[in-house]
């Protein structure tokens, strides 16, 4: 967990977390995971492309992967709805979790969203209920669950796939109750105050580790990025460097999987409860 702290300010990290060169869920499915088989749909209304779910292997482990997915060009961005899930996305994610529970496979979730989609249709279909229900069900999911914050951890929209035995954050990822822009607009009536808001919200991985809200920081090497220009022009992308960089995350996931696998069931469930139970700072 060694890392150079304070070399970047909070808002710089927000910008890195949002960068188009930032590795997305699909990039990891092609590198640290193998044999990915996607599943679709929530069996209630629709399939939500902002959330990718499926079976995959990481090393010798058969796991369920659930990740929010951004796009790199205008069409894929629109297709993925800028990684802002609708209720059907969260319900699909829950379906995946329940399948994993049924077949005794660990769950790995990858968080990368600006937030849950704030639109008329999402409200009509119960965005709040979809998120709330996932929180309750994830708290009680019987299989080992590892959460990784890849890029943007956008409030309730992120947390809806974020309740797990272990919560890992990439070094330059952020996790916040509101976007710095949204916070600045409300509290300072000026979205230009976003850098100040980012600093105040204490949303970096190092901040959140200090506050006891995440368990581990995964270091990023310089090569923790995807060559976006090549992938956009349709050229062959050389991922070899990124594969090496991604190995750090793979190691971290595997290490946690091994620990969780060894833990007795009751203890694992108890520790998950206590971890979230103890979050918060107040006077009493």
């Amino acid at each position: 967990m060694k890392k150079e702290t304070d070399d970047k300010n909070a808002f710089e990290r927000v910008q890195i977390a949002r960068d188009a060169e930032r590795p997305y869920t699909n990039d990891l499915l092609e590198t640290i995971f193998s044999d990915f088989q996607e599943i679709h749909g929530d069996r209630r209304y629709a399939d939500d492309p902002a959330v990718v779910c499926g079976f995959a292997k990481i090393d010798d482990y058969e796991v369920a992967v659930i990740g929010q997915q951004k796009g790199r060009d205008i069409n894929s961005r629109r297709h993925r709805n800028f990684a802002m899930p609708k209720p059907e996305g969260y319900r699909k994610a829950l379906r995946m979790m329940k399948l994993a529970e049924k077949f005794g496979r660990p769950v790995i979730t990858l968080i990368d969203t600006p937030g849950a989609y704030p639109g008329i249709d999402a409200e009509e279909r119960g965005q709040a209920e979809a998120i709330a229900f996932n929180l309750r069900e994830m708290a009680n999911l019987k299989v080992p669950t590892i959460v990784v914050v890849l890029g943007e951890g956008g409030s309730g929209g992120a947390l809806a796939i974020g309740v797990g035995d272990r919560v890992l954050m990439l070094e330059n990822s952020v996790y916040s109750v509101i976007t710095p822009e949204g916070c600045a607009a409300i509290l300072w009536k000026d979205a230009a105050q976003a850098p100040r808001a980012a600093e105040s919200l204490k949303l970096t991985a190092a901040n959140l580790l200090d506050l006891g809200l995440v368990d581990e920081i995964v270091t990023e090497s310089e090569d923790w990025k995807i060559d976006a220009s090549t992938s956009q022009s349709g050229g062959e992308v050389d991922n070899s460097k990124f594969e090496k960089a991604a190995n750090e995350l793979k190691k971290a996931i595997l290490q946690n999987l091994k620990q969780l696998e060894k833990m007795p069931f009751e203890k694992r469930m108890d520790e998950r409860y206590k971890k979230f139970r103890n979050m918060g700072k107040f006077i009493c």
Binding site: L135, G156, Y273
Partner: peptide
């Protein structure tokens, strides 16, 4: 909603309460 002035600590209260409700449900 969540109180902005406590940042991600406020967000995590959602998970904390929901986990307790899971126990109540069981």
């Amino acid at each position: 909603g969540a109180r902005m002035q406590e940042g991600t600590l406020s967000l995590m209260q959602m998970a904390k309460i929901s986990a307790a409700l899971a126990k109540l449900h069981e």
